[in-house]
């Protein structure tokens, strides 16, 4: 895979009237890498993806993909891109199989070559048994897989997955994740937007955390969690707020009220000291668990992902 097909976003801005939806986002995506845009609804993820493939015109900044610069050369760049948009835009006028063969026509893949490629992709996403079904007869998970198959018709060098598993059941999500990991293994660069932490943590090599159109932090999921929170977190109920606040302050730990209880990070060095101190207050519920991206987001933004 040529390094020339790295995608680079330079200082992307998008404003609608007075509202800045995306503010100065820069990053790169190399072949064989999964980069995640993680943020709550309205953080600017979909707008950013739109700028990457050319349907959102940046107010400032540009995207370089190989020798093509977007938005001006989006049409040319998309010949090497696969795009799974958030909204379902499969063709209800065609069967599953024809959704692929007819869309292949737009890439100049026609006749027997189109039928062969459609067959390969249906096998890849385990939909070959539904080839003659109408799109309306598919489940949500099957539709997402078919959109992914359609995005791979041209054997793209880079794939955009915009909230690909929203609304899917756990089995369908696992199935989708397997496909994404296979794509990565084949050398494809993947940009994933999601508000699911488990998805981001499991799939992404690097993450950009977005809030209100800005990158508030970035790094690998492991590094982000370790740097911002630490290794472990305690979830506590039934202990007075002031006691926990004092405890956190005295040990340099992060503390936050959460739901009907509290969260407190356990220091990487001597976590037992804090843990035992909490336990000494006989909380009604006490849970010790590994820190995760939800904690990172909560600490950085003060809000949970939704």
């Amino acid at each position: 895979m040529s390094d020339a097909l790295t995608l680079k976003a330079y200082d992307l801005w998008k404003t609608y009237g007075d509202e800045a939806v995306v503010q100065g986002i820069s990053f790169s995506l190399a072949p064989g890498e999964i980069v995640g845009l993680l943020g709550p609804n309205g953080a600017g993820k979909t707008t950013t993806v739109g700028m990457l493939f050319g349907t959102v015109i940046p107010t400032k900044g540009f995207v370089q993909f190989g020798s093509w610069q977007l938005p001006g050369q989006g049409q040319l760049a998309r010949a090497q891109m696969g795009i799974v948009t958030q909204e379902d835009n499969l063709d209800p006028d065609f069967t599953v199989f024809k959704n692929l063969t007819h869309f292949a026509h737009h890439y100049r893949i026609t006749g027997a070559a189109a039928r062969q490629r459609a067959g390969e992709l249906l096998a890849l996403v385990n939909l070959e048994h539904r080839a003659e079904a109408q799109v309306d007869e598919l489940s949500g998970g099957m539709k997402r897989k078919l959109v992914l198959a359609r995005a791979l018709l041209n054997q793209p060098k880079i794939v955009f997955l915009d909230e690909p598993t929203t609304g899917l059941d756990p089995d369908a999500r696992q199935d989708f994740w397997r496909l994404v990991q296979d794509l990565k293994a084949s050398g494809c660069g993947i940009l994933l937007t999601t508000h699911y932490m488990d998805e981001a943590q499991r799939l992404c090599d690097r993450l950009l955390l977005l809030q209100q159109g800005k990158v508030i932090d970035k790094g690998t999921p492991t590094d982000l969690v370790a740097r911002v929170i630490g290794r472990e977190v305690a979830e506590i109920e039934g202990v007075e707020t002031q006691i926990l606040q004092d405890l956190a302050a005295s040990h340099g730990a992060w503390y936050r009220a959460f739901g009907s209880g509290h969260l407190i990070s356990l220091p990487d060095r001597y976590p037992e000291v804090v843990w035992d101190a909490i336990a000494a207050h006989h909380p009604s519920r006490l849970l010790r668990r590994p820190a995760n991206l939800e904690d990172v987001f909560l600490r950085l933004t003060g809000s949970v992902l939704e």
Binding site: Q75, R78, E87, N89, L90, D91, F103, A151
Partner: peptide, 13 residues
Amino acid sequence: QKTWQALLTAPLS
């Protein structure tokens, strides 16, 4: 149907 939007994910202007 969002057909236009789908077509614009292909290399079409």
